[in-house]
Structure formats: C-alpha cells, structure tokens
C-alpha cells in the first residue's frame, strides 16, 4: 500500500432529505488500515453518511474523495454492505449466487463470471463459515446467517475499503464473534473498515477508531481519545438538543443551506 492519499476524504459535506438536513458540515479524513466504528443515536445520519460516500445519495454540498479520486473512478476498491432489511430475502436466488454478485464489481457489464470468480466466491463463503449453505435459497437463512452472507459478498469484492451498514444488527452471539474476527482479519490485512454500529458495549476491544455522529461530526479519532463519556454525552444528548431544535425549525421553514455559501 504505497498510496499516500487517505482512503476516504470528506469535505464540508451536507446532506438533506426532503429539505431536512441529516448531515451538516461534515469534514474528516479516514486513516488507512483502521477498524472504525461509526456510532450515534437513531437518525444521527450514520447510514446516510456511508450511503453518501458510496454515491447512493446526492449531497447538497461537499466533496468526497476515495484515494484522491471521485468514488466513481475507484469503485472496485470500495465494498459496501447494505443494511440487511434493504433487500427482499424471498428473492429466488441461492446463497452462492448472492455471494457471486460481489464479483460483478470486477466484471464488465454483460460478462459472465468465470472460474476465478467462482473460486473467490466459494472462499468468501468459507471465511464466513457458510459453505454448507451455498446451495440454499436465501429465504431459509436466519438473521445472523443473512448478515454473514452479505459480508461474504463484500469479501468477494476483494476491495481495500469496506463500508458496512449495521452488519451486527440482530445477530446472535456466535455470529457476532465471527464477524468481529473477520473485521480484525481485514484490518490486519491493511484494509480500511468503517462499520455503522449501534451497540456501545462492544466498541471497546473491537474497534481502533471511533466516529461519533449526530448530524454534526461530534468526534473522530483513536478510540482511547474519542470514546469518552463527555463525547458520548455530546453525541447522545445534552447540548445537541439545541441543534435538533434548529433542524426541526429549518424543516418547518423549508430552509436548506444552498451549496457554495460559506
């Protein structure tokens, strides 16, 4: 990894949904090779942040760079794990087919996956401990198994950056352990991993860096420095109520900051 450019740079990012700001003036650089937890209360804009980085949501203003380039030019290097609820699990495909979709990021349109892609997909399934389920229909999976399969699809992408939206939501204890192990393996391989996370209990011991988010970027840095009671209070309550009130007011008055105004 000779690249000196940070995996992700976010500059002055503001995102609004139906004129209601959900992210306000976010600015940060993600360091390489760290396992990062993105935490914050419900509606803090955690999912929105990674969806915006992936280009799924158009920001009102701001700039996002992946290894110094617009995300569209670095897509094969960045893998995204959507929330489990975002798809119809009754869709008629098998576990293996789903994981193979991870390889589509390296395939040209209208090209079929080859034997190398199949091998990588099989290995990804092995890594999450789901090899026995390859032929199963995805509707037969439990919540934890669904998360593992989603993770396997991302592994099959063989990316350098992983953005994961609540990969630990609704999983059993065994799956949680498996997933945390996988995440640290990725980090040890030098990958950059950003995980939207909801469980404050399991942040210590599992993550290197922490990003606290609540409409604004409350704090971002090494876990020991950032994951403090004071910061948590800032993110989850107290003074931020004023910001929430202002946001509500802005929504009422249909006020959105125009791009380009500083």
């Amino acid at each position: 990894m000779s690249n000196k450019l940070p995996p992700i740079e976010v500059h002055d990012l503001t995102v609004a949904y139906r004129k209601k700001p959900v992210l306000w003036d976010i600015d940060f650089d993600v360091p390489e090779g760290k396992l990062i937890a993105v935490i914050g209360p419900n509606g803090a804009g955690k999912s929105t942040l990674i969806k915006t980085i992936m280009g799924l949501i158009e920001p009102v203003s701001g700039k996002i760079l992946v290894y110094g380039k617009p995300v569209d030019r670095e897509r094969p290097r960045i893998a995204y794990v959507p929330q489990r609820e975002s798809v119809d699990w009754d869709f008629p495909i098998s576990v293996y087919e789903l994981v193979l979709m991870g390889r589509y990021s390296h395939l040209k349109l209208f090209r079929r996956p080859g034997s190398n892609d199949r091998r990588i997909a099989t290995e990804a399934l092995e890594k999450v401990g789901m090899s026995d389920y390859a032929g199963r229909q995805i509707s037969q999976l439990s919540g934890g198994q669904q998360q593992r399969v989603f993770l396997a699809r991302a592994l099959a992408q063989q990316a350098d950056i992983y953005l994961m939206d609540e990969p630990l939501a609704g999983v059993d204890a065994a799956t949680e352990t498996t997933i945390f192990e996988l995440l640290s393996v990725l980090r040890d391989e030098g990958k950059t991993v950003l995980v939207v996370h909801h469980d404050l209990q399991s942040v210590s011991g599992n993550f290197d860096w922490v990003m606290l988010l609540n409409l604004r970027l409350v704090a971002f840095g090494p876990r020991e420095e950032v994951f403090t009671t004071e910061n948590l209070q800032k993110a989850y309550g107290g003074r931020l109520n004023i910001l929430t009130q202002v946001v509500e007011l802005a929504k009422e008055k249909s006020f959105v900051r125009e791009p380009g105004h500083e």
Partner: peptide, 23 residues
C-alpha cells in the same frame, strides 16, 4: 437473455448494484 445478470442484480439489490458502479 443478454442482460440477465444485470437485471437480476438490479432487481434484487439496487443499492448494492449502484455501489459497484452499475448504471
């Protein structure tokens, strides 16, 4: 027949499809 793979991907998970650069 030609665009089966793309139509399957977009029908199942449009968000992911977009994330890997699918039109």
């Amino acid at each position: 027949a030609v665009s089966y793979k793309e139509m399957k991907m977009v029908s199942f998970d449009p968000g992911f499809a977009k994330s890997i650069g699918y039109p």
